[in-house]
Design a binder for these strands. Structure first.
Lengths: 110, 110
DNA sequence: GGTTTATGAAACCAATTGGTTTCGCTTTTG
DNA sequence: CAAAAGCGAAACCAATTGGTTTCATAAACC
């Protein structure tokens, strides 16, 4: 398979298992078998999650001896943060929400 | 079906169409047919996306005459923001990343 | 009242997802 | 060298996803 980015960050973090994996890797670099020991599923399943996270470039793996160690690569989360920042005006600033609501009351005064 | 929250925020925003819908609704309240006109898919498909967004409580709809108008309800995005904030230490603070990397070099004498 | 507009609900479908098991290869270790 | 550990790849599977079409209902309009 080529390095086509089949999965993006939004898809990658949609799965709770993958979010847990990210959290594990945020503490330290870990090999697949180690990661697997934290989940009630097979190594193959975990490896697939890791591949999806790799495609989104949220983790990167390197081979050390017979094991492959993964580490967190949080950079792409900035895309998420940027996306979020657009919506912050609608909920951190209550005034904006109010304006927003008021503006959307065309003929509801039945 | 009861009102069990089948879809969470992470799943809801995983789909690009749903993210576009959110953006549309951030500008103003819109009925389903209006939203549909922005996408190359059927009204039914859009309605399903709206239901998923509703389950995640990212939008809420109210009936006005024969149409159902949806509006953005950005509150649940705070969950996303919280989740993100945990990882910010790993990428906004380059020093942390460095520490993180250095700590994970047990026998990698490549 | 009948037609159009807006929607809801259901049946259906192909592709994707998230999991499994099996097999083979490489590296470490006794 | 042989066995075990760690992994990759492939075949397979059920459930979910993202879309469709069809049909029925409610409201608006002439």
């Amino acid at each position: 398979m080529s390095a086509v980015q089949k999965h993006d960050v939004f898809q990658a973090i949609a799965d709770p298992t993958r979010r847990e994996i990210l959290k594990l890797l945020s503490e330290k670099e870990l090999p697949i078998s180690e990661i697997t020991s934290h989940f009630p599923m097979s190594r193959t399943a975990v490896a697939k999650h890791l591949q999806i996270l790799s495609e989104a470039e949220l983790v990167c793996g390197r081979k050390v001896g017979r094991e492959k160690r993964f580490r967190l690569h949080p950079g792409p989360l900035s895309e998420l943060k940027e996306w979020l920042s657009y919506y912050e005006q609608f909920w951190t600033n209550k005034l904006s929400i109010l304006t927003h609501v008021v503006e959307s009351q065309p003929e509801s005064g039945d």
